[in-house]
């Protein structure tokens, strides 16, 4: 008996604080939010509230504003992930080829990540000024100076949902592409040189080398990148808040709607939005976790 405790006891003791803290502050509070989302606590008044089942969720999914925010989020996520993966991969490919001053380029591409989104959002808000023609400012002004006037556009302030949310995704892509580049670059560097040599000896063209030898080895990294970018995009709040302000219907995503809802003390509805966001992230993350666990078991 004593012997057994000695084997698992110390381990359990080390884990205990983590389990307690995570259990309370993460999972406990998720449960609490879920509980709140089932009540009619629509003011800041304390005291008991009545349970109304899933009524709050029903209202949410029949509400124009919430559905709009979900659609915005979907478009934003697609634009952000595709854009970041493309730029990250291109930069990684260029650096992987070995350029002089590689470390400088690596840092330059990574630097945007070091800026907080609220700060870069303020500046991007100025850059994405929708004025065109003689009054053009920000990027539109740059286009005018470069005689690329056809590129001038109203950014997020007019046009379809796609152009609107792609304009919002642009700063996020700028900010996160360097990180994805670093991920892919590490992936390329982790591939043993023998594989390339063997492929070249077998007469593979450069294209075939990447297509059939190198890229397949990067797929776990691509999957990780997808998950990381996905959950960043789903939680995106500060960047949009800084660029467009908190009450912009065109660019509202669930995180911002939740903030607005909480500001008016509608706790039950805000909790319901939070739980929907959690569910959307879970749809993305849980299969990934399951996959990782299964792969680890195989080893």
């Amino acid at each position: 008996m004593h012997g057994r405790i000695r084997t698992w006891g110390p381990g359990a003791l080390v884990l205990l604080p983590t389990v307690l803290l995570l259990g309370y502050f993460v999972y406990g509070l998720i449960a609490w939010s879920f509980n709140t989302s089932l009540t009619n606590r629509h003011t800041a008044r304390s005291g008991p509230a009545d349970y109304v089942g899933f009524e709050n969720y029903g209202h949410l999914f029949s509400e124009d504003r919430f559905l709009n925010s979900l659609k915005n989020l979907g478009v934003l996520t697609v634009a952000f992930i595709v854009g970041t993966l493309i730029f990250g991969l291109i930069w990684a490919l260029l650096l992987e080829k070995g350029v002089p001053g590689e470390s400088i380029f690596r840092s330059v591409f990574l630097f945007p990540m070091a800026i907080s989104m609220i700060a870069s959002g303020v500046v991007w808000g100025w850059l994405l000024n929708p004025s065109t023609g003689d009054d053009a400012r920000g990027l539109n002004r740059l286009f005018a100076i470069l005689h690329l006037n056809f590129l001038e556009n109203p950014w997020w302030t007019a046009g379809s949902r796609w152009t609107t949310m792609m304009s919002i995704a642009l700063p996020a892509v700028w900010q996160m592409s360097g990180y994805i580049m670093a991920l892919f670059l590490a992936g390329f560097r982790g591939i043993p040189p023998e594989l390339r040599e063997a492929a070249r000896v077998d007469g593979a063209s450069e294209f075939k080398l990447y297509r059939h030898v190198l890229f397949p080895q990067l797929s776990p990294i691509a999957l990780s990148a997808l998950i990381i970018l996905g959950h960043i995009s789903l939680k995106l709040f500060d960047l949009i808040y800084a660029i467009t302000g908190p009450n912009q219907f065109r660019t509202e995503v669930p995180a911002i709607l939740m903030w607005n809802t909480l500001l008016r003390s509608d706790q039950a509805k805000a909790a319901a939005i939070a739980i929907v966001m959690l569910a959307v992230v879970a749809v993305l993350v849980i299969p990934y976790l399951a996959l990782t666990v299964r792969q680890e078991e195989k080893r």
Binding site: L128, N129, P130, S131, T132, D135, R137, P154, T157, Q248
Partner: peptide
């Protein structure tokens, strides 16, 4: 329609 184009910004 008489206002500046960058009113949202």
């Amino acid at each position: 329609s008489y206002t500046n184009a960058d009113r949202e910004a």
